[in-house]
Nucleic acid binder design. Structure first.
Lengths: 139, 139
DNA sequence: CTCCATACTTGAAGACATCAAACAATATGA
DNA sequence: TCATATTGTTTGATGTCTTCAAGTATGGAG
């Protein structure tokens, strides 16, 4: 049995892991001509369209910031704004087909780069999945 | 035994974990008046002084970018530049006492926020540590 | 000494980030 | 209903981040 790492040691390793993964993501995004903020936005939209407000909340930034990011994505036809049918103040942002393709390409590239996961056995993958779910609970 | 998650599922969770942790870090940094780039820089310097060049390499950004970041940190007396004794082209950047205190404060705040790790048993911590080391090998 | 590489800085241009202020549409309360 | 407050989004100002091209100074190889 390996010795128990301290919380500080584990956080240090966590920080390293996060930096590595984040850098990979940024690189994959840059290879397709996107900034990491733009790629993060497309990632959120991959699941479902969202209003400007909820995008800003999810990405933890100011609403006025989203305006600029969506402006630039829309100018490249990767997303489109649609006025909500139920509340005319709200604009729902959805991926275009080109946007969908682009974010898929980034995810594919990440899968190829992320070779570390291939080092794990099925049991280890399941255990890592479980542990991460505990440490970073959804929502 | 839990079912084996697919690589895609695991990467999805990994992305979520990374986003969460990164957002926490950015928030902790902002609470002390630093941007995340500035806080990341101080984190690197916490271990040892480094030249502009190696900082840029570690943080995966252009060297000219570091100039601006270090300029702003130096203006606030959080770091200082020192001309290398062996190569007068090189400037070594070191934390000041104030810089040391500030990055310590951010780390402390992260420890308080990162309550997920407290949910794990000693065995689970050791296992998470081991798995992360495999997936994100040092260097 | 000449030539080239290296370490860093500067300047320009675009993106990111936050704040205050504006605007339109909706909700609330008398 | 009408006046008022709240909400969703945008605009403008300011500062930071990021990259690129170009410049300066130092070091090293021939």
């Amino acid at each position: 049995m390996p010795p128990t790492p301290s919380k500080a040691q584990l956080m240090e390793l966590l920080a390293h892991s996060v930096s590595t993964h984040y850098a990979d993501f940024t690189t994959a995004a840059a290879d397709t001509g996107l900034t990491s903020s733009q790629a993060k936005t497309l990632t959120v939209l991959r699941r479902a369209p969202a209003s400007m407000r909820s995008l800003a909340h999810t990405l933890a930034c100011d609403a006025s910031n989203m305006t600029g990011i969506i402006d630039r994505l829309e100018k490249r036809d990767l997303v489109r704004r649609e006025v909500s049918a139920t509340d005319r103040r709200v604009k729902n942002v959805a991926l275009t087909e080109a946007g969908q393709k682009l974010i898929d390409a980034i995810r594919e590239r990440m899968e190829q780069t992320q070779t570390g996961l291939d080092q794990l056995s099925d049991e280890e993958r399941a255990e890592l999945f479980r542990l991460l779910t505990v440490v970073f609970p959804a929502q």
